[in-house]
């Protein structure tokens, strides 16, 4: 299902993940969230930006366990726990946040 953002059409897979990593931009993230009925706030952006940096460095999207630990280290213990991350991303922090970050689904994500 193609995603339309300000007149530009982006290719996505059957689950709504961006087909091309390089298509990502903040307004694309906003549109991806919008198609799930979600609105992105500061807390979401912190995680999305973290994921993009992680991917750039390691070429993978981290597993939830790794994401949770790393967020805790980067943004503090109050954010490095699954309760907080699931509140932000109720469909699963790794799955949903990766989608808005324009990354492929995390390796080993079921």
């Amino acid at each position: 299902m193609p995603l339309d953002v300000n007149g530009t059409t982006y290719e996505t897979d059957e689950e709504g993940y961006l087909a091309n990593l390089s298509d990502w931009a903040p307004d694309v993230a906003t549109a991806l969230a919008g198609s799930d009925g979600a609105e992105l706030e500061d807390g979401h952006w912190e995680v999305i930006n973290f994921l993009r940096e992680y991917y750039e460095e390691y070429q993978i999207a981290p597993a939830v366990r790794v994401l949770t630990k790393a967020i805790g280290k980067r943004l503090g213990k109050d954010k490095g726990n699954s309760k907080y991350l699931y509140e932000l991303f109720p469909y699963g922090p790794a799955k949903q946040a990766c989608k808005y970050a324009g990354l492929p689904k995390p390796t080993g994500c079921v």
């Binding site: 992680y54 460095e57 390691y58 070429q59 993978i60 981290p62 597993a63 790794v66 630990k69 790393a70």
Partner: peptide
């Protein structure tokens, strides 16, 4: 090809 050699550096996180 994708440069998956960068991914080995993430093994410590796992």
């Amino acid at each position: 090809m994708k440069n998956f050699s960068k991914t080995y550096a993430a093994l410590g996180d796992y």
